[in-house]
Computed example of a mutant assay.
Amino acid sequence: MTTRRGFLGGLMAAGLTPRASWADVGLPDFVTAGLEPNGQYILAGLSRSGEVLFRHPLPGRGHAASAHPLRPEVIAFARRPGRFADVLDCRTGRQIARITPPEGLHFYGHGCFSEDGSRLFTTENDYENARGVIGIWDSATYRRIGSFSSGDIGPHDILRHPDGYLVVANGGIETHPESGRTPLNLPTMRSSLAYLSFDGALLEHVALPTDLRLNSIRHLALAPDGTVGFAMQWQGDLGDVVPIVGLHRRGTAPRLLAEDDPRLRNLNGYGGSIAFAPDGETVAVSSPRGDRVQIMDVHSAEMTQEHNLADVCGLATAGAGWVATTGLGQVLSLSPEQARPITTGATAWDNHLIPVG
C-alpha cells in the first residue's frame, strides 16, 4: 500500500508538490493597508474579530489588494502613482514576489485574478499616452505576459464577474506622475464602466449622462445576483447633490441611488469603498471625507440608514452586514441598525478592506 510519505515523495520527484489552499490555512479573513505610528506603511492580515495576524512592511503607501482564488496568497498594490505590488503568503505574511510595471506605466491600486488563478490582471496608467491599460501576469511566476486597453482613461478598480468577463471602473481622469494626482482633463473628462473579455475584447461600454460626466467611477462591488455596484467621486462643485452609488447589469442603463436625497452632501462628493449586504438587498458606501457610511436599498433606490464614523473607508461584506475600518484604528461591525466597535489599535487603516479565503 502506498504511504502518504511515499505518495508525497513521488509528487515532489515529479515536480507536483501540492500547494497549500485557503482551506488549509483558514486565516486571515481580511487584508488591508495601513500606516504604523512610526511612519511605516504595511499590509496587514485581520481576523473577523479585528486581531492583526501579520504585518508586512511596504515600500510606500498601499491601496487595495487581491486574493488568489485557490492559494493562500494576496497581492498588495501601491496607491497610484505607485509602481510596486507585493505578493504575500498569508500563512506567514512572507513576501513571495514583488512586481513592477514596465517603464511609462504605473499601477492604479487594484487588480484581480482569473477564475482558475493562473493570471493576474492589474489596472495601470500609460501616462505619456493618456491611455488606460490592463496588465496581464502569470501567477505561477508573477512575470508579465501581456496587456490590453482598459477601454477608457484612468482605470481604477477591476473585478472578475462570475459570468466570465472583467469589469473595469474607468475613472476618466488623466494624470501624470510629474503633476502628482492633479486631474489634467476636467474640461473633457468622462468616466465609464467597461466590460472586457479575458483577452481584452470590449464587450460593453457604459457612460453616465452628460450632466454627470464629472462623476468619476472608482470602486466596484458584486451582488449575489451578478449586479455590479459602483461608487463614484465627484470632481465638480461640492455643494451639488449628486449620486455617489450606482448599479448596473449588462444591456441596461445604470441605476443611480438616492439621487435627490440631501444627505448625499454628507459624503462630501466622495465614495471610498462599496459593498453589498450578504443578501444583496442593500448596498453600503463609505466616505472618509464625509465621515459617513450610507446604506441604500437596491430595489427602491432610497437611502435607508446613515452612520457617522470618523475617517471611515474600508468596507467589506461580513456576517449579516459589513465590517468597516477607519483611519483612527477602529474595526467595526456594521448593520443597518448600528455600528459597533470591535477593536481599536494604533494602526491607521487605509482605503480598503479586502475579504480573502
Rank of each mutant, 00 (worst) to 15 (best):
L309K: 04
I274M: 10
G290S: 09
S287L: 00
D297P: 08
S287A: 07
L315E: 10
R289Y: 03
T317C: 09
R292C: 08
G280T: 01
S287K: 03
D291W: 09
C313W: 03
I274K: 08
D297K: 03
E306Y: 04
E281L: 12
A301V: 11
N308I: 14
G314F: 03
M296V: 10
G319S: 10
S273G: 09
E306H: 06
A310E: 15
P278E: 02
D297Q: 10
D279A: 01
A310R: 13
E281Y: 06
A316I: 01
Q305H: 14
V293L: 08
G280M: 01
E306T: 13
M296E: 12
F276R: 01
G272P: 09
G319L: 03
I274T: 11
G272I: 03
G321S: 06
V298M: 04
A284P: 06
G319T: 02
A310F: 11
A316Q: 04
A275R: 04
A320N: 12
V285C: 11
Q305F: 11
T282R: 05
A275I: 06
A320M: 11
G314E: 05
S300C: 05
A284M: 04
C313G: 04
R292K: 13
P288C: 02
S286V: 05
A320E: 15
L315Q: 03
A316T: 05
M303E: 15
H307C: 03
P278W: 01
S300K: 07
M296N: 12
R289P: 07
L309A: 07
G280W: 00
D297S: 09
H299S: 15
T304V: 12
G314K: 00
M296Y: 10
G290M: 02
M303N: 13
G272D: 09
G272A: 07
A277P: 08
N308E: 15
D291N: 13
C313Y: 02
C313H: 06
T317K: 00
A284F: 04
G321R: 01
C313S: 08
V298E: 05
H307R: 05
A275C: 11
E302C: 13
E306D: 14
H299K: 14
D297F: 02
G314N: 04
M303L: 15
T282Q: 10
